[in-house]
Amino acid sequence: MHELDETDLEILSLLAEDGRRPFSDIGEAVGLSGPAVSDRVTRLQEAGVIKRFTIDVDRTQLRAGVPVLVQVELSAGSVETVRERVRDADGVEHVFVTAEGDVWFYARAEAQNVRSWVAGLLADVDVEGYAVTLIDDVEWTPSIEGLEFALTCAECGNTVDSEGETARIDGDVYHFCCPSCLDRFETRYRRLEEGA
C-alpha cells in the first residue's frame, strides 16, 4: 500500500481550491510534469481518495433564495430517512448529522415560504422539533491541509498504513490493513460470486 506523500497532499490541496486547474499548473507548483501529476491523480482516484470532481456554485449569484440553517431534533430511527430526504431536496447545500443523532442542514429557500418548505420536507417523519435560523453571511472553506488522510480496511474497518495491502477485485480497488483481511475478503467475495 503506497501512503500519501507530501506531493499527493499538495496536489489534493490545489485540486480542492480549483478542481479544473490544469495538471501543468499543478506540476509547476509541486515540481512535477503535467503527465506525472495526471498519473498521481489517476492513482488517487483508483485508490478511492478522490471520488469525484465537483463545482462550487455561488447560489447568491443565482438568487436562489435566503440562506437558512435548519436544526432538526429527531426521535431514534429517523436519522437516515431525514438525511436522505433532505440531501435530495432542492436548495439544500450541506447536510450534517450530529453526535446526538440530529440532522442539521444549510439550504436556500424562498423567503416567504421557509416554514412550509421545511414542514413539507419533514412531513410524515417522527420529529421532536426543529429550529430555522436565517444566515447573514457564509464562508465555506473546505481544507485538506494539515489533515491526516487514512484509508480504511474493506474487511474490518481499521486504518490502512504502509504495511497494508491493496487489491483490484473485478475492476474495483480495495484496501486492507493486513494480508489476513485481504484473504478473508477475497474468500467471502468468491463464495458470494459462486452462490449468485
Rank of each mutant, 00 (worst) to 15 (best):
M1Y: 01
E3Y: 03
E6F: 14
E6I: 15
S13L: 11
L15Y: 14
L15A: 04
D18T: 02
D18Y: 12
S24W: 04
I26V: 13
E28H: 07
A29W: 12
G34W: 00
G34H: 00
G34T: 09
P35C: 09
V37F: 09
V37H: 03
T42R: 13
R43L: 06
G48I: 14
K51S: 11
R52K: 12
I55H: 11
D56K: 15
R59W: 13
R63Q: 11
A64H: 01
A64G: 04
G65W: 13
P67Q: 14
V68W: 13
L69F: 09
Q71C: 14
V72A: 02
L74S: 02
L74Q: 02
V79T: 13
T81N: 08
R85Q: 12
A89R: 06
D90H: 07
V95Q: 15
A99I: 05
A99R: 01
G101R: 12
G101D: 02
V103H: 07
W104S: 05
W104E: 11
F105K: 11
F105S: 05
A109S: 13
A111S: 13
Q112N: 11
Q112E: 15
V118N: 07
V118G: 04
V118D: 02
L121C: 02
V125P: 00
V125Y: 00
I135V: 15
I144K: 00
E145Y: 13
G146A: 05
F149G: 03
E155F: 13
N158Y: 02
T159Q: 08
T159R: 04
D161P: 06
S162Q: 12
E163K: 02
G164N: 06
R168H: 03
G171M: 04
D172Y: 01
D172W: 01
Y174K: 03
P179V: 04
C181W: 03
L182Y: 04
R184C: 01
E186L: 10
T187M: 05
T187N: 12
R190A: 04
E193A: 04
E194M: 08
A196Y: 15
